[in-house]
Each structure stands twice: as structure tokens, then as C-alpha cells.
């Protein structure tokens, strides 16, 4: 880690202004991933702009019954928030299934969204990696690693996005609010993270110098319930082998609203639009769930050691939908 300057920003505007003046700078939130990456030599900012004390730690209802979540709200506070637990349980559960109690106390909402892949090659600066150093190659592609993508990967990158929270946000149709040198803009969570294509160095659609200020959740669809399910190697404190966030409402035996997103399968949370199209209006039966999920996962292209993820994700999703249907 090379020496760096440090500035504690007093406002989002100041943070963005400072960044514009120092393009080698990075924003520091909780730092649970950034400091980790700096120690690994993967991130090497020449200045940190500390945004962790900005007044962005609000969780508040929107006028239409949605929820605004400030970028610096700590993961544990968000998971414990009454509105999140009662109206968006998938988000609370996703947060609680990730990391550890200590990390959740430190990690911020914005930082969680921006955390980077745990692909072993990305984290090791002695090896090639197109994400870390474009053009050097992707040794993961032919490796015996299991924790790689089965959907949406390219010959340039087969990494997966590690966040649980982002998967729930995708299924919950959250909006990411950004503040940048050119003012504010919003990006839907489903479009915030990218597929690797031939530019895997870019994880998200965020532009240089933009700061996440808040996330906004739309009102919960009427009658909809949600949950998050995750499978992992260890009973706790492990990244997902595969995970799913599901939102479902059923009326008179038929599915009204359905949203499904997978974690651990792709370079971004994988919103299952194909499955959702088949779910909406169909009878809420096991057969429907299986057919819909299978249709989504038909696009999967497993690598050497990770074909199990397809069946695993399928079972997680079908069971999650069945559990929600049974509740409604």
C-alpha cells in the first residue's frame, strides 16, 4: 500500500468536487472491502475521500410508501430496521446472510453495492486478471475453481459478484441515486451492475467521480412477500455458492407479481426476467415454478467445475417461490 492523502468530506458536494480535482482518489465508506483491496495492492488510491460521516445515514419512508436508504447506513442497522424487516424482508435476510456481525456493523449500503469480486485471480496481483489489469488475460476461465459464473460471462471474465444485498435490491427493483460532477442521476439496481463483456474492469455503470448517495425502494407490491435464500460451503460467514431473492404475490391461486434474482451465478445479480414472464398470471404451483426457473437457467453455460450451481440455483428458487406461495 503506497502512502495516500486523506480528506474527510463535509458534504456530498465537497466529496464529488475533491474527487474531480484528484482523479486518483477513491471514496472511503466503511472500508471493509476497500481497505482489504488496498492491503492486497488491488486498489491503490493516492487519496481517500472519507464519506462515512456524511449525513447519508437515513432510512425514511417515501411519500408513495417506498423507502429511502442513505448510502452510509451500516448493513446491520439496515437489516434491523423495522420497515426493512416488515416490508422488505428479502433485503434484511440478504444482509444478514452476508459477512459477519462485525463486518455488517462497519460496511455501508453504498460500499456493499460497490464491493468487488472475490475471484482468487482478481485478488492476487502476481497473476493476470482482465478485471484488475485489462488485457492480461483470465486464468480463471480454465481453472478448477467453483466460485465462478454460469450466466452472462465472457471469455474475458468469469467472475461473480459477491454481494447478497445487491441481489435483494435487484429483485426489489431498487433505484440507485448517484451524485456526480454533472449533478444527480438515478440508475435502476437491475442495471447498475454490468456483465463483463470485453470491459470486465468496469463492475458497474457508475461514472468516474460519482458518489452513491442513496437507494430508493419502491412501495412493496400489494400482497407481495419476499425472501432470500443462500447456499454456502460453511454454515455462516461464507460467500454464496448460489442465492436467490424472490418476491411473490398470489391472488386466487394465480401469480400477480413475481420478481426473482440470483446471486453467485454471474458478474451481476441476475434478474430472472424470463422466469418472471412465465410466472406472472400462471397458477402458483410447483410445476409453474419449475418451468419458469428452468426456462431462465436454460441460458446457463457452466465452466469446468461449477455445473452444480445450475441445479443448486434452480432448487433454491423453486423452493423460495413455493415457500412464498404457501404463505400467501
Amino acid at each position: 500500500m503506497k502512502p495516500f492523502g486523506y480528506l474527510r468530506a463535509r458534504s456530498a458536494e465537497e466529496a464529488v468536487r475533491e474527487h474531480a480535482a484528484h482523479p486518483g482518489a477513491l471514496f472511503l465508506g466503511g472500508g471493509t472491502n476497500l481497505v482489504d483491496l488496498m492491503k492486497l495492492g488491488v486498489a491503490a488510491p493516492d487519496r481517500l475521500i472519507d464519506i462515512s460521516r456524511l449525513p447519508l445515514d437515513h432510512v425514511a419512508d417515501t411519500e408513495d410508501g417506498g423507502l429511502r436508504i442513505g448510502a452510509t447506513v451500516r448493513n446491520s442497522a439496515l437489516a434491523a430496521h423495522h420497515s426493512v424487516r416488515t416490508r422488505y424482508p428479502a433485503l434484511s435476510q440478504a444482509l444478514l446472510s452476508g459477512a459477519s456481525g462485525q463486518l455488517r456493523n462497519t460496511a455501508t449500503t453504498g460500499g456493499n453495492l460497490l464491493q468487488r469480486t472475490r475471484c482468487a485471480y482478481f485478488q492476487d496481483t502476481s497473476k493476470p486478471c482482465n478485471k484488475r489489469q485489462p488485457g492480461t488475460g483470465c486464468p480463471a476461465l480454465d481453472s478448477a475453481q467453483r466460485d465462478l459464473a454460469v450466466l452472462g460471462h465472457s471469455t474475458h471474465c468469469v467472475a461473480t459478484h459477491p454481494s447478497d444485498m445487491a441481489v435483494a435490491l435487484s429483485a426489489l427493483d431498487a433505484t440507485v441515486h448517484l451524485h456526480g460532477p454533472d449533478g444527480g442521476r438515478t440508475v435502476p439496481a437491475t442495471g447498475f451492475h454490468r456483465l463483463p463483456g470485453d470491459t470486465p474492469d468496469r463492475d458497474t455503470e457508475i461514472r468516474p467521480g460519482e458518489l452513491i448517495t442513496e437507494l430508493v425502494l419502491p412501495p412493496r407490491p400489494e400482497g407481495a412477500a419476499s425472501l432470500y435464500r443462500k447456499a454456502r460451503d460453511r454454515a455462516s460467514f461464507a460467500f454464496a455458492l448460489a442465492s436467490v431473492a424472490a418476491v411473490l404475490s398470489v391472488r386466487g391461486g394465480r401469480i400477480e407479481h413475481a420478481a426473482l434474482a440470483f446471486g453467485g451465478l454471474a458478474h451481476r445479480p441476475w434478474r430472472a426476467r424470463t422466469a418472471e414472464d412465465l410466472l406472472r398470471g400462471a397458477p402458483a404451483t410447483e410445476e409453474t415454478f419449475e418451468r419458469a426457473v428452468d426456462a431462465e437457467l436454460a441460458a446457463a453455460r457452466p465452466l469446468r467445475e461449477n455445473a452444480f450451481k445450475v441445479g443448486l440455483a434452480r432448487n433454491l428458487a423453486v423452493d423460495a417461490l413455493a415457500e412464498l406461495a404457501a404463505d400467501s
Binding site: 482468487a120 478448477a144 460453511r234 455462516s236 460467514f237
Partner: peptide
């Protein structure tokens, strides 16, 4: 890792020693 000649799981996030919940 046959290409690089090292053990891939070289930290405590990837080498899973049992946690309390296990």
C-alpha cells in the same frame, strides 16, 4: 493451481475452517 503452482485458498475467506455455526 496447476498453472501457477500455489494453493488457491490462501486466506481465511476461501479456506473454510469451521465457524461457530458449523
Amino acid at each position: 493451481d496447476p498453472v501457477f503452482g500455489d494453493y488457491t485458498e490462501n486466506d481465511l475467506a476461501s479456506y473454510h475452517v469451521p465457524a461457530c455455526a458449523d
